[in-house]
Design a protein around this nucleic acid. Sequence first.
DNA 1: TTGCTCCTCACGTCACGTGAGGTGGC
DNA 2: TTGCTCCTCACGTCACGTGAGGTGGC
Lengths: 271, 271
Amino acid sequence: MRDAVARTGVAEATLRMWERRYGFPSPQRLASGHRRYSDRDIELIQGVVAKRAAGLSAKAAISQVLARGTQPQTSIFAVLRRRRPDLEARTLSKPLMLALSRAIEDEALAKGERLILFGAFQRERFYRQSAARWRELSRTAEVAMVFADFPRVRRATDAPAEVPVPRADALNREWALVCEGESFAACLAGWELPEGARGPDRRRRFEAVWSVEPEVVRAASRVCAGIAGAHDPELISGALARLDSAAAAPAESQLGVATSVTARTLARLSG
Amino acid sequence: MRDAVARTGVAEATLRMWERRYGFPSPQRLASGHRRYSDRDIELIQGVVAKRAAGLSAKAAISQVLARGTQPQTSIFAVLRRRRPDLEARTLSKPLMLALSRAIEDEALAKGERLILFGAFQRERFYRQSAARWRELSRTAEVAMVFADFPRVRRATDAPAEVPVPRADALNREWALVCEGESFAACLAGWELPEGARGPDRRRRFEAVWSVEPEVVRAASRVCAGIAGAHDPELISGALARLDSAAAAPAESQLGVATSVTARTLARLSG
DNA sequence: TTGCTCCTCACGTCACGTGAGGTGGC
DNA sequence: TTGCTCCTCACGTCACGTGAGGTGGC
C-alpha cells in the first residue's frame, strides 16, 4: 500500500475511496485483508492519474482506462464492428478498396493537417507498390506507421515506420487505413476473403467497413498503436501522447468528409 | 441567444456563466449589448458539449476545443476549401496551373496597383525559373514573399523575400499564388497529387481551387503572413499592418477580374 | 512494542449549473 | 405592450479528496 502510494503519487485514502466508489483498483488481498497491488495495477492507476490531469472526472478516467486495459486487440476490422455493430460490412473488390483508400488519403492531403496515420498492407510487396505515396503522406504527418510482414521494425525520418505483424495476428489478413487529422478522421478496414470465397472472376475480395466518426477512428488508432507498441514502446510514445491528450476530430465535419470521400472514390473509379 | 440555446441545447444561464468564468464563448455584441453567436461559435459550443459528455470538466473541455481552433494553418489550399466548401476543386495539369498563375500575375501588373503578393513554389529550383518575373512583380509591390525549400530566409530590396517552408508543413507540396491590390484580389492554390496518381502521361497534376473573392483571398494572405511570421516576425510587420487596416478589395469587381483572368489563361494556353 | 493497514463516517472544497429578482432594449 | 435579453448574487448539488478516530495484524 505504502508502495503503491509512493509509485503513483495517489494518497492512501484516495486509493481506497476509488476502490470503494468505482471498484477500481482491485488489488489482491492477503488473508489478513491487506492489499497487494500488482505492477499492472500500478500501471493502470498511473493511467488514471494521467487522464485526471487531462481534465477527466475520476469516474470517466477510470472507466476509460479499464476499457483499454482489456486484452489486446489485433484486428482493426473487429474493433470497428464491435464499436458500431450497426455498420454494415460490404464485400468489396480489390479495385474498390484501392479507390476508397486513395480517396481517404487524398482527402487527408487536401486538408493539409498534421496527421496520425496507420496503414495495414498484409504483404510487404503490397506496401512497396504504394511506398512513394506513403512517403509523401508521412512527410507532414505527426505519426505514420505501416504494418505488413516486414522482416523487422524499421524507423525512418522521411518514411513511415515499418512494423512487422505477427503471423498469428488477425491484422495479417487485413487491409486497413486509419487517418486522423485535427478536423477530420476516417478509416477503412477489411479482411480478405479466403481464396475459396472469391467470385467467379477469382479476384481478391474483402469484407470491409469504413467510418468517419471520430471516436470510432480513434479506437482504431489505439489498436494500431497497441500493436506497434508491442514491438517497440518507444515507437508510439509520441502517438500515445497525442491520442491521449488530443481531442478526437470534431463530429460536425463528418458529413462533409463522407461526401468528399465518396465523390473522390467515384471519380477514381470512373476516371 | 434563444437561437444559440436551441441549436446547442445549452441553457442560457449556463452559456453566460461559461462566458463569465472561462471567457468562452465570446459572441459579437450589438450596440445594445445583446449577444450574436456566429456559426463558428455554435460549432465550438457543440464541441464543448461533446467533450463534457465524454467526462471532461467544463474548463478542460473548453480549453481543448479552443486549442484546436488555434492550430496554425499551413495549407493555403485547405484554408480556401474551409472558407468556401462549395468551391469545387479541379485536377489541373502543370501547364494549366502555370497559365492560370501567369494570367493572375498579368492581371495584377495590368492594374498597376500596390500589391500584397505571396507565391508558393515547393522547390527552390521552381522558383528560380520564375525569379525574373517575380523580381518585376515585387518592384511595385508593397509586400512580396515567396515560399519554397530555401535554405534560409533572405530579404532583398529588389526581389521578393524568400521564406523557407518546414518540410512538415502542408504548404511544402502546394503551388499557390495570392495577390491583393486595392481594387482587385485573386488567388490560386493547389496541392500536388502524389506520383502514383499522375495520369498515363506521367505529368505533374494538382488539385486546385481559385478565387477572386476579396475575403477569401484575404484569408489566404493571412495564412501566408502567419507562416512567414513564424520565421521572422519583422518580415511581415508591414504586411500585417496593411492586412489589418486595409479594406479587402471591393466585391463589385469580382466578375470583371474573373472574366479577365479566364481570358488571359485561354490566350496563354492557345498561344 | 512500533509503525502499518484496515474500516467507516463525515466533512470541506471546488466545480458547475440554475434560479431569483430587477432592468432596459426589441 | 409583450416577450427577450441583460446583469449579478447566491444557492443547491454533485463529485472528490481527506482527515479523524478507533481496530487489529505485521
